[in-house]
Design a protein around this nucleic acid. Structure first.
Lengths: 339, 339
DNA sequence: ATGAAAGCGCTAACAA
DNA sequence: TTGTTAGCGCTTTCAT
């Protein structure tokens, strides 16, 4: 079937050239923005192209240029949680926005199974993607390394679990963000501060915990409890209950993401304590719901959309100029009612 | 730049054929799954392809077949809200999953500006997309009609604002879902039932309101208040406050989506009332957070991921067999603590 | 059952 | 500045 009403077939460069009264090459030059073209030829071509609603045939172009003019946005983690998290969509939005002016397609892909991975790797290595944005990888995933070995430009969201030579990535300043959360709490007079961590196979979770501990150390404090969470509401609630049972005297909690903070908020309320009067609570992310819950959540904001944009720009840079240094973006505390 | 280590260039059908000792045509036939090929030729070709990690060059294929082997997943509404809503990501996930076996790419696009729209329309009409999944259109958007006029297969998420001849779409049974919410509430003995609607330029909001009213009518009841919301937490909270002020005697509320129900929950608590004891609350969506809030939200579940899958399958059907009837998927009430 | 050959629409040398 | 020409890798007649 054809994506076009019967009869008319898509205009080609040939037809544009004919209408403009020039050769195909000249028409091509104009459309490619070449400067070595006469003024009247240019105008004629532009007029003809507009007249015919000409659109370059990407397939034909790709065949010649050996570029695909498309870049992959690849989700390494098929877990439900990731899709339920607004983060993902916002990164995608940022990446798309940054690519808007570049005339490249964003090809979306999820690597759900081992077969998916294998197929994707061949596809990318086969030159069908000019570059790849990789999000939500877990643990020590070999994919970025393998893609890089195959010569495929890659940018990661978040630092890799283990350093990879010459691998570009964009990350939030998780360590600094966690430290500033601690600073914020100590400035408000809190001294018995606990934390709920994310899953510790994720660099973001590790960095936030380390930043938390470093922040406390800078104030000559020790953690008033550390509970493992998993970045979910239910996990945050469970972890908070454990903390309250083990350390009933705590007066503040830093949750490594907002979802866990929401869960913690419930657990605190159920224990008969009040936020922030009895327990101050700080989250991480500034997710869309943070301002809407009650009490509104004080949290460490990371610039998600900007990070998505940065990843796309970084990738373009890798494609055009080779390896790029990592980029760590600043975070800041958004003060609301919970702390 | 090239997505491949210097020196080695991507294997072509030519090289596979050479290694297998057959002609390019035969190699092509094998890889295309043709039956008119000798057994030993087939095996030789398959072995050679595996050996070389051959991947079909899509550009070259497209040029011949005049298909792009890619379908667009297009977001018509650039609003922040949409991306903050987990719905979007889950539909995308479903669509991707359904396409997994079809060897097509999912090209993701957001139509943020009028220029984006115009460019996209030309792109699609130019035959560079075999079909389009259109998500989150607002009001009476002409895009589906225009694409269809241009011969581009389209599937919509949600029924269009105004009927479009021969346009395929996949929707949840919003009317039936709202009715079942009312049934559920009346079965629990509630009789003074209010609703918080979505933005009434969206068919889903209209249908849920209408279903709500029809459900009440079936029980010989009238609405105990109708407040306009906008599908956000803040909007739900505001609307709930208005309802409580205007109709302090209400004993149940149906919110047209979960986010508004979350907001309503806060407003109810602030008024000193308790959920569900004083006011029963039912949402719509069964969003990931519905089970995690406190009290857990009773809500009308719609099968989001399945709807994403259905949209992709529908689109394939439109592409291969022409116009398809709309598909309305069933909803069901998930009983939790809030009602 | 297989091969030879003709393009699909475009870009990039190379000539003019 | 412009035109001519030669492919890019694939699918698809048409012969054989």
């Amino acid at each position: 079937m054809t994506a076009r009403p019967a009869g008319r077939s898509a205009p080609t460069l040939e037809s544009v050239a004919a209408l403009a009264g020039v050769s195909r090459a000249t028409a091509g030059r104009v459309l490619a923005g070449s400067t070595t073209v006469g003024e009247q030829a240019r105008e004629a071509v532009l007029a003809a192209a507009a007249e015919l609603s000409y659109v370059t045939n990407r397939a034909a172009r790709s065949l010649m240029t050996r570029r695909s003019d498309s870049i992959g946005f690849v989700v390494g983690e098929p877990e439900e949680r990731f899709f339920a998290d607004p983060h993902f969509a916002l990164v995608l939005r940022g990446a798309h926005a940054a690519l808007a002016g570049h005339d490249v397609q964003l090809v979306f892909s999820i690597l759900a199974s081992a077969r998916d991975r294998e197929r994707f790797e061949r596809f990318a290595a086969g030159g069908h993607l000019d570059g790849v944005i990789l999000v939500s990888l877990h643990g020590d995933d070999p994919l970025p390394q393998r893609l890089q070995d195959a010569g495929v430009p890659v940018v990661l969201s978040g630092r890799p679990f283990r350093p990879v030579d010459g691998l570009a990535y964009v990350d939030a300043d998780n360590t600094g963000g966690a430290r500033s959360a601690v600073d914020y709490l100590t400035h408000r007079g809190r001294e018995r501060i606990a934390t709920i961590t994310g899953p510790l196979d994720m660099p973001a979770a590790i960095d936030r915990r380390d930043g938390f501990l470093a922040g406390l150390a800078a104030h000559d404090l020790a953690a008033h409890g550390v509970a493992d969470g998993d970045f979910t509401v239910a996990g945050g609630r469970r972890a908070m209950s454990e903390l309250l049972a083990a350390r009933p005297g705590l007066d503040a909690v830093f949750a490594a993401n907002d979802l866990m903070a929401f869960g913690a908020m419930q657990a605190i309320a159920e224990s008969g304590r009040r936020v922030p009067h009895d327990v101050a609570l700080v989250g991480f992310d500034d997710s869309p719901l943070a301002a809407s819950v009650h009490p509104a959540l004080t949290t460490v904001r990371q610039p998600i959309v900007a990070m998505g944009e940065a990843m796309a720009e970084r990738l373009i840079a890798v494609i055009e100029d080779g390896p790029q240094a990592p980029l760590v973006m600043p975070t800041d505390v958004v003060a609301r009612a919970s702390a």
